[in-house]
Design a protein around this nucleic acid. Structure first.
Lengths: 213, 213
DNA sequence: CCGGATCCGGGTTGATACTG
DNA sequence: CAGTATCAACCCGGATCCGG
C-alpha cells in the first residue's frame, strides 16, 4: 500500500496494517498460533494465493510475523510479540462489529475457529475457584470445532476438539454467536437450531455479568 | 470495497471501515466535530477529491456520518453516535502506533490538530480538585494550534487557539509528541527545538502516572 | 471559493493456471 | 504443499471541469 505520508499515529498504523486482507491474516495467526501456508489459505476464504504470499512477505518485513521451518520442511508462520500486540486493535474492531453480526447473508463463508474471537470478547471465568470446565463449539458447515477452557479465572479458546467437554453447543454459527454474546437464552436458541448437550450451567459461569448488546 | 463475505465480526467491520482513507476521515470528524468538505480535504493531505466524495457517500449509507446544511448553505458532515463508537478502534490503533512515531520522515504532512489524538491517549487530569488549566500546542509548519483543557478530572482537546493558556508548547510536532507521551522531559525537549512558555507544572498534572513507551 | 463530478493513466486485486 | 506467473477487472490518484 502507498503510505499516507502523514505524521499521525493512526496514519502510520494504517500504513502497516491498513492493506486489504492484512488484519484478517493477523486474525488467523492470533487464533491458530503458528500456521502453515495452506492453513492460512483455508482460514481466509476468498483470498488470492499471490496476495497471501505478498502480504506474508510484507508482514515479515514489518516485523509482525516470523517465518520458521518445521521439522518436515514445511514453512510455518507465527506472530512476533509486536504482531501479537494487534490483539487490542482486533478486539476493538470486533466489539464495534457486534451490531453487524445479526444474520448471516447467504454466501458468507464460515469457519468454526472464527468463534474463538467472540469467545475472548464476551466470555470470562466468573468462578475462578471452581474446578475447570470445558466447552466445545461446533458451527454447522465446518468440521473443525473450537474448544473453550475456563480455569483459575482465565478463559482460553483454541481450534480443535475437546476431550470430555462439559457442554457442547452445535448449530448455525449465528445461533452460537447470539448465545455467547448473551443476546439469547440457551432455551430460545434451540428454536434457532442450536443443540446443547451437557451441562448448561457452564454458560452461567462463562458469561460476563454485563451482557454486550 | 468488495465485501470479504465472511461471517466474522472483524471481517464485517472491515467491510465497512476497511477502505483506504475511511478511518482517516473518521479521525478528522472525531477531532474537529462537524466539518465542511474543504476542511476535511485540508485535514487529509493526499486524498483525491473524488475519493473523499465517494467515501462520504458510503459512510452516510453505512450510518456512520450525517450530512446537514449550515445556515449559509454549506454542507456539513458529522459523525452519528454509531460513527463515534469508532473512537475505541482509533484509540487502539493509535496506541499500537506509538513505537512508529519516533522520527518524522521528510515529506510527511503535518497538521496541528492531529495532536489531539495523542492528547486523548496519553494525558489525563491528575488533579481533579484544582482549578482548570489550559495548554496550547503549536506544531511548526501549521498555523492552527490545539487547545487542551483540563478541568474536574476530564481532559478535552479541540482545534483552535486558547484564551490565556497556562502553558504553550511550540515546536516540531515530534518534539511535542515525545513530551506528551512522557518519553522526554520538557527540559530535554528544548534541545530538540521545543519552546515552552508559561507554567511547566501543567504538564505534571496532565501526564498519566504510568508513562507510555 | 465551495462542493463536488468526470476523465484518464497506472497500480492493486482477484481468478486461474502452472511449477518445483 | 507452497508458492509464481499471467492477465483482466477494478480501484486509486491526479488533473480538469463545472454549477452555485
Amino acid at each position: 500500500m502507498r503510505s499516507y505520508r502523514q505524521y499521525c499515529g493512526l496514519a502510520r498504523a494504517l500504513d502497516v496494517v491498513g492493506d486489504r486482507w492484512t488484519l484478517l491474516i493477523i486474525r488467523e495467526l492470533l487464533i491458530r498460533g503458528s500456521s502453515r501456508y495452506t492453513d492460512l489459505r483455508d482460514g481466509l476464504p476468498g483470498i488470492a494465493t499471490n496476495l497471501l504470499a505478498d502480504r506474508l512477505n510484507e508482514l515479515e518485513q514489518a516485523g509482525l510475523i516470523q517465518r520458521s521451518v518445521a521439522s518436515a520442511g514445511a514453512a510455518l508462520y507465527e506472530l512476533t510479540p509486536r504482531g501479537k500486540e494487534l490483539e487490542d486493535v482486533i478486539a476493538a474492531l470486533g466489539r464495534w462489529a457486534a451490531p453487524l453480526m445479526g444474520r448471516r447473508s447467504r454466501g458468507d463463508a464460515v469457519r468454526g475457529h472464527w468463534l474463538a474471537l467472540p469467545v475472548q470478547l464476551y466470555l470470562a471465568d466468573g468462578a475462578p475457584n471452581e474446578p475447570p470446565v470445558t466447552l466445545e463449539l461446533r458451527a454447522t458447515g465446518d468440521s473443525e470445532p473450537v474448544t473453550v477452557e475456563a480455569a483459575n479465572g482465565a478463559v482460553r479458546a483454541r481450534p480443535g476438539r475437546a476431550t470430555l467437554p462439559d457442554l457442547v453447543l452445535a448449530g448455525p454459527p449465528e445461533a452460537i454467536m447470539s448465545v455467547l454474546m448473551g443476546r439469547v437464552e440457551i432455551g430460545a436458541a434451540r428454536r434457532a437450531g442450536l443443540q446443547a448437550t451437557g451441562e448448561p450451567a457452564v454458560l452461567q459461569r462463562l458469561q460476563r455479568r454485563a451482557p454486550n448488546q
